[in-house]
Design a protein around this nucleic acid. Structure first.
Length: 568
RNA sequence: GGGCGUGUGGCCUAGUGGAUAUGGCGGCAGCCUCCUAAGCUGUAGGUCAGGGGUUCGAAUCCCUUCACGCCCGCCA
């Protein structure tokens, strides 16, 4: 409903500018603590036409006609600011609308099925996901959910790097070690990877054998590819299992090698040669990007005729581009330069460019993580540990409940807590993983939001138990005039805007902050406004509000990839 | 050395041109005969890394210095 209010403000303001004859280029609308929406346009208009901003603000205010608007209640001038406030109707309409639309509130539907492919995680299958990888997964998955709500037909892809050097190392190690079958498969692969690296360090000569595998696989040698898949498959099985525990799902897993066997990589090289930008450097083909602002030229094909990771990535993107209207890649900050190169080169051959969402690294207090050295905290370990803590929490808080209940709550609270801690922080901020903080359930994180939802459900459950409130249709939301009722409704009305902003800016942390504020508003309402003991009409109106809050919290949680428990 | 990014109370963090800088954690002081206290209320705590500039107005833009991270492979 906030978006509709904003539209009305834009329209009346535009008209007022026309009437007063001010040339506007920018309405300068901003959310403000002093109003529901405000504009500081008078400052700029004042500078442009030599009048005082204050008098301009008054003039514009006087020209504003609210005849056609029902969501704007009043307009006030405060110095040079013009402040807009929502109307009475805004509140009742919001509650009614959420009641009518249910879980579709805040969803844009029927946009013609424009398709976006979100690529995320795409971690090398040489070990389990660690706490750095899952920042990628969680950002990507949350974005996918947000864009789905924004009306996009979203497909999520995992690009499987099944022919990298790391994979070759493990494939080579298969000739020397047994896979430890007592471990989860991806952990067993990592273990083998580490042992192989030790062996290679001790005897540098052995690299020759690994390099031979690399050469053969880059030439598309089916036999070696099969050997590689003995590594990739168990690793991917383990990774998929971890992702599932995080409530993350991919639609398509596409392997890097498929672009070699299909010949697509070589077509890319040929097409680029035709652009006249490719030069031969010591037998290798490279693309010069100096005039496009990048000193470092991009190597497409080695002297020996094989291609590189980036070349295959180009082929992958061309293939992807043909299937969608928009591409988004979620990548770690180490890919900043490469992804810029990728975008430029794609443009050279007329392929649309992906939007790249870059996130900064997650490190450990003692330094950066390394699968090779075995220095990392795996996502599985974190999930197990947090579930253990969640189980302790639920056991002390709800000692009377069944073991199954405790188990289920611990699982959904645990994974949500992990997701929230990661998604709440802006992607361009480096993070240091901290066990104490990760396992802290007291702070305002996911459990706080889930708890608000459970509280709402609890009230509704009791009301239903009283045998009355199944028809909230007859409730009168205009009775909801209390301060904290109003604040809560305003927050609920903002949900579609929060989702829209997060989607437009590709910044999922915006939604995380919103979720926390929404839960806070509900908790304040919960404190101030007794529902079940209220007088009959008010009771029914408040039940309708609680129901709308429950819906809004559930939508928000779902979009963040977190379960909304009815009880916890 | 060059490029990109980050720097906000003890710790973490929101805010990238607008009104007294947002929250959390931790601290201190309170609130359960009442819908789940995984909750609520109050309070202390700030040279928005330093300096200079632009602007009616700067955490936000420009210049500069410093600190930290990532990148600068015919690796992936």
């Amino acid at each position: 409903m906030f978006i509709q209010f904003e539209d009305e403000v834009k329209s009346v303001l535009k008209r007022a500018f026309e009437i007063t004859g001010f040339r506007f280029s920018d309405l300068s609308l901003e959310e403000s603590e002093h109003a529901d929406l405000a504009t500081s346009a008078a400052f700029r208009l004042g500078a442009a036409c030599g009048k005082s901003p204050i008098s301009i603000a008054r003039e514009v205010r006087d020209a504003i006609r609210l005849d056609d608007s029902e969501l704007i209640g009043r307009v006030e001038v405060a110095g040079p600011y013009i402040n807009f406030f929502v109307s009475e109707k805004y509140f009742s309409r919001t509650v009614e609308r959420i009641h009518a639309e249910g879980v579709d509130f805040g969803s844009v539907t029927g946009t013609g099925g424009k398709k976006v492919i979100v690529e995320h995680t795409s971690a090398n299958p040489n070990g389990p996901l660690h706490v750095g990888h899952i920042r990628n997964s969680i950002i990507g998955d949350t974005l996918a959910r947000i864009l789905r709500r924004c009306g996009w037909d979203v497909e999520v892809q995992y690009y499987v790097n099944d022919m990298g050097r790391q994979i070759a190392v493990v494939a080579w190690a298969f000739e020397h070690f047994e896979l430890d079958s007592s471990m989860k498969s991806d952990h067993a692969i990592a273990d083998m990877y580490q042992r192989a690296n030790q062996l290679l360090e001790e005897d540098e000569e052995r690299w020759k054998e690994v390099n031979e595998l690399m050469q053969r696989v880059e030439g598309g040698d089916e036999l070696v590819l099969k050997q590689f898949s003995r590594v990739v498959e168990p690793a991917m099985d383990g990774i998929r299992e971890t992702l599932k525990r995080l409530n993350i799902d991919h639609d398509v897993f596409i392997s890097e090698s498929s672009f070699v066997t299909s010949g697509d990589v070589f077509k890319i090289v040929e097409d680029l040669k035709r652009t006249g930008r490719v030069r031969v450097d010591d037998g290798a083909f490279v693309v010069d990007l100096k005039d496009l602002g990048i000193e470092k030229s991009l190597v497409l094909q080695r002297r020996d005729g094989t291609t590189l990771y980036t070349t295959r990535d180009l082929a992958y993107h061309r293939w992807k581009a043909e299937q969608c209207d928009w591409m988004i890649d979620v990548l770690g900050s180490d890919h900043k330069l490469v992804s810029r190169q990728l975008r430029l080169v794609l443009d050279l051959i007329g392929v649309k460019q992906p939007d790249i969402v870059i996130f900064e690294f997650v490190s450990l207090p003692e330094g950066s993580m390394s699968t090779r050295k075995g220095v990392f905290i795996s996502a599985d370990e974190l999930l197990d540990e947090i579930k253990k803590h969640a189980l302790e929490e639920v056991s002390t808080r709800r000692p009377d409940t069944s073991p199954e209940f405790k188990e289920r709550v611990a699982e959904i609270v645990g994974r949500a807590a992990i997701r929230y801690d990661i998604i709440k922080v802006s992607a361009d901020k480096a993070m240091v993983f901290n066990w104490r903080e990760a396992l802290d359930f007291e702070k305002q994180g996911a459990p706080f939001i889930q708890y608000a939802h459970a509280r709402a459900c609890s009230i509704l459950r009791r009301a239903r138990g009283d045998g009355e409130e199944d028809d909230l249709g007859s409730a009168d939301p205009t009775l909801l005039t209390g301060e904290s009722e109003r604040e809560l409704i305003k927050k609920m009305a903002y949900l579609p805007k929060a989702i829209e902003r997060a989607g437009q800016d590709l910044k999922p942390h915006i939604l995380a902050a919103y979720a926390r504020e929404l839960a806070e508003s509900f908790n304040q309402f919960y404190r101030d406004s007794p529902v079940l003991n209220a007088e009959e009409d008010l009771r029914r109106a408040r039940l309708m509000l609680v129901d709308a809050a429950r819906t809004t919290l559930a939508i928000t949680l779902e979009t963040l990839g977190m379960e909304a428990p009815e009880e916890m």
